[in-house]
Computed example of a mutant assay.
Amino acid sequence: MATQIIETRDLVREYKKLRAVDHISFTVEPGEAVGYIGANGAGKSTTIKMLTGILRPTSGLVRTCGRDPLRERIALAREIGVVFGQRSQLWWDLPLQESFTILGAIHRLDPAVARVRSGELVDLLEMGGFLSTPVRQLSLGQRMRAEIAASLIHRPRLLILDEPTIGLDVLSKQRLRDFLGAERREHGTTLLLTTHDMGDIERLCDRVLVVDHGRLAYDGTLSGLAKTVGAERVMVVDLAPQAGHEGVAELRDIPGAALVGVEGEGTRQHLAFDPQATSAGAVLAAVSARADVLDLAIEEPDIEDVVRRIYAASR
């Protein structure tokens, strides 16, 4: 059995007037959760279609679960689950439960095993209240829970998610994120996630691949992504008013930090600093020497801004 769940080497996919994927190389190890992110048209969906055997590469190597996705597509289908946010693998006019029964048969699961597994997923994703409802009548949040369950009914080694939370409300997104995190911890499922929602990446992934115009612009951790472009952290401090004054003087000369926001007559101030150049402790010590600190918080770099900087640097 192959050690790597995904392997690509100099992977290229060309169309008549466009190279959608341009010599991309990366690997994904068992149990990893990897975010594959980029702007629209960057090459994300094309890569996924080659990983799953839907598209033939123009050149280069691709292996998924140790298999050639094109030549071993049927065997590969038993080892992967795929969720496309805009496409369904459920039977539109049938009650949801019947879709699960059919999918169990397609994957050649023993009927008793399929019933136990679908029951487990129904409980974990809280779908008991709409199992008898035709899929076409489900809300978007209900249908996406059902799509996730459908992709996992055969316990795949790899789960590929293409925009799984698109259009969902905050509660539905959190429910899906919690479930996916638990599935990975308990069963060792490998996740490959493409999304425009940075909350998905921050909560689910420990590694990020950034693709820009078909080329891999970054491969590493989320924290490393921010460090690559020198993204700043922001310390938000709540300060006690100075004696005889209603507010607090602006902290414009704190070493290693820049004042980027002031609220409430200076009682709340925002100081940006580069964690590679100075520490949060040093900034706090300098602030404490100037005013009484009542409370503080550290805001991490905005990931969307970091990704924009990566794009700019790669171009």
Rank of each mutant, 00 (worst) to 15 (best):
S223N: 09
A20C: 05
M235P: 04
R290L: 09
I80G: 02
E29T: 07
T101M: 10
L152M: 15
R157N: 14
A39R: 15
L251E: 00
L140Y: 12
S88H: 09
E232Y: 14
T47P: 03
V306A: 03
T195R: 15
L191N: 06
G43L: 10
E120D: 14
E300D: 10
P57L: 02
T194G: 08
T52A: 04
V135G: 14
V307M: 01
I303T: 12
V208D: 00
D238G: 00
D305H: 14
G244F: 02
P111T: 07
G43K: 12
A285H: 13
R71W: 06
S132H: 14
G129D: 06
L159F: 14
G261H: 05
R56S: 04
S223C: 09
I148Q: 03
V122M: 05
I74A: 10
A258I: 09
I106K: 07
G38H: 03
A114P: 07
E246G: 08
D206I: 00
D212A: 08
D253I: 07
L171V: 15
A42F: 01
I37R: 01
R78D: 00
H107M: 02
A114T: 07
V283H: 08
H270L: 06
L131R: 15
T228N: 07
R117E: 00
S45I: 04
P255K: 08
T46F: 03
R56M: 03
Q142S: 08
E79Y: 00
K17Y: 04
I303M: 15
I102D: 00
R67C: 14
L204F: 11
L159T: 13
D123S: 14
E32R: 02
I54Y: 10
G261Y: 04
L192F: 15
T27C: 02
A146K: 07
G181C: 01
L159H: 12
T190N: 09
L125V: 10
I254K: 11
D219N: 06
K227V: 00
G224E: 01
R71K: 15
A39Q: 10
D200R: 15
L96P: 05
L125I: 10
D212H: 11
G81H: 09
G214D: 04
V135H: 15
G264T: 00
A297W: 03
V293D: 02
L55T: 02
A243C: 01
P156V: 09
G43Q: 05
D206P: 03
R117L: 01
A114Q: 07
Q89G: 08
T46A: 03
V28C: 11
Q137E: 13
G230L: 02
L11Y: 01
P95C: 12
E246N: 10
D68H: 12
I303A: 07
D169S: 11
G244D: 03
A2W: 12
L109K: 13
G119M: 11
E186V: 05
L51Y: 03
A231F: 04
V211A: 06
G214I: 13
L176C: 13
L259C: 11
L296W: 11
H196F: 01
F26M: 10
A240Y: 05
V260I: 13
L103H: 05
Q242I: 07
A313H: 10
T221F: 07
I6N: 11
D110E: 10
P241R: 05
T58E: 00
S151G: 04
W91D: 11
L209R: 06
G199C: 06
E98Y: 13
F84Y: 14
R73N: 00
E126A: 14
A312M: 11
R290K: 13
F26T: 12
A33R: 06
P301I: 02
